[in-house]
């Protein structure tokens, strides 16, 4: 089967897209939780979360364009 499926690339795609797709979406959700809490700590946490999301997007654009 390996002749027809590049398993090595496939699992990398799966892990990377789970981390970036589902993981960053979850981090973004956490930032909304922080924002709606009203506490200063919540806002700070939200800012950190959004920073992580932004970093993920920049990294994604970078690796895609640096081919």
């Amino acid at each position: 089967m390996n002749a027809y499926i590049d398993l090595d690339a496939l699992w990398k795609v799966l892990v990377a897209s789970l981390l970036a797709g589902a993981g960053l979406a979850a981090v973004f959700s956490l930032s909304l939780v922080g924002l709606s809490s009203g506490h200063t700590a919540g806002r700070a946490g939200a800012a950190l979360c959004l920073l992580i999301v932004a970093a993920g997007i920049v990294l994604g654009l970078y690796v895609m364009l640096a081919k």
Partner: peptide
């Protein structure tokens, strides 16, 4: 919609980076 587009973006970026033609 947010989760769907995040997933699409991630899978497209990852597959184009790792050379898996999706």
């Amino acid at each position: 919609g947010f989760a769907a587009e995040s997933s699409s973006a991630a899978v497209i970026f990852a597959s184009s980076h790792f050379g898996f033609p999706l």
